[in-house]
Write a protein that binds this DNA or RNA. Sequence first.
DNA 1: TACTTTTTTGAATCTATTATGAAGATTTGA
DNA 2: TCAAATCTTCATAATAGATTCAAAAAAGTA
Lengths: 223, 223
Amino acid sequence: MQKILIVEDDLYIQALLHDFLKDAGYDITVAADGVEALAKYSEKDFDLVLLDIMLPKIDGYGVCEVIRKKSDVPVIMLTALDGEESQIKGLDLQADDYITKPFSMPVLVRKIAAVLRRSSKQNDAHRTMSYKDLTLDLDGYKAFVGDENIDLTPREFEILWELLTHKGRILTRQNLLQTLWKYEFFGEERIIDTHIKNLRKKLGDADYIETIRGVGYRIDKEN
Amino acid sequence: MQKILIVEDDLYIQALLHDFLKDAGYDITVAADGVEALAKYSEKDFDLVLLDIMLPKIDGYGVCEVIRKKSDVPVIMLTALDGEESQIKGLDLQADDYITKPFSMPVLVRKIAAVLRRSSKQNDAHRTMSYKDLTLDLDGYKAFVGDENIDLTPREFEILWELLTHKGRILTRQNLLQTLWKYEFFGEERIIDTHIKNLRKKLGDADYIETIRGVGYRIDKEN
DNA sequence: TACTTTTTTGAATCTATTATGAAGATTTGA
DNA sequence: TCAAATCTTCATAATAGATTCAAAAAAGTA
């Protein structure tokens, strides 16, 4: 299992990252400030570091610099919009990638997967996920029913992905919003209905997605 | 046993929550205002906090803020409909989830289970409950007799669930109404009869549910 | 047995939730 | 910057499920 060090002082975001990435199958360690980060870092080898820039004690730049002296572990920086982004570009970019807040989990997961793939020079075999005659290419964001390529929008793809990773479990609209949308999204939860409708239409007759009235949606367990 | 702190000034709702969640197997502590809440909170570690927004002395927002400074324990907010809901959305959501009053216990229990699952990172295994050849999948809201999937409506499922968690005990119609319906329901208690009828029909010949004339219904203890 | 009370039942009605199409807003990519 | 794609909201229609009702059946009682 690949090991990720999350360095983030906002406990809410820290928890979000922790939960979601653990779900995604990574081994997670967290730190809330620069000093703690370096301490944790020296304790074991990580495959990737997620590093907030604004940190107590030692900021992200500092942490990154120290880490870089010892190793070339991939680093992804988390930046607020205002200016930090351009600073990163201005610096001689010791980080491998960066992502601006607020971000959504799927976007982050994609970046992580991309960076890890690059660094570990794994072959380009795409990760896939299947259900009945449905196949998702998780890296290419493509879906197939049988051999036929179904053209899904990113959002549709992510909803389908999430339902499939939790086969048999009912996901409420809130569940989906919390994991797939940026954590600052304050819109209507009815938006899920519309995406589900569009998904169903594109996926055709075999209606994989069940409605549980008053609760949410589910893709059944295969059996 | 997981520990929940309930902070709610309406004593009726407080009692409801206390009883139902205790039944559901949680270790419950209650507080009726913000100050008491923080006092109780500092006394022991909780796995989850249920927090009403409108509270005497210090309101829910304040309590949440203080708690957040010390820990990232999951918090679920209880809100009245009028405006509070949108306030929550407007705040930078330090809570993990919220539920609007009036709510029903099953809805709340579902949220609690979801939040705890996320935070404690239990695996994705479904919680199930069995009785003779009957099995309930509590996360998927599905029922099975043997291997056969029985298609129950949410209400039917919840009634069956409640009867099974109290195997051997007679539940009156009032009992069921109080725990499964929103606490503002003022309809006929005869509605239970109809749901029981439909349940029996769907569950088939083996009649799991006994009628205790003049009292209520029961599912017998296994032996 | 006759009478009362309670439960069961099927059908009718009502309601809340979901599905849907279309319009408007936003984002993305050229 | 503009155009196309996608996301989001909204109003309306469709419908599953919840609830009520009234009559029949069953259980208890004298």
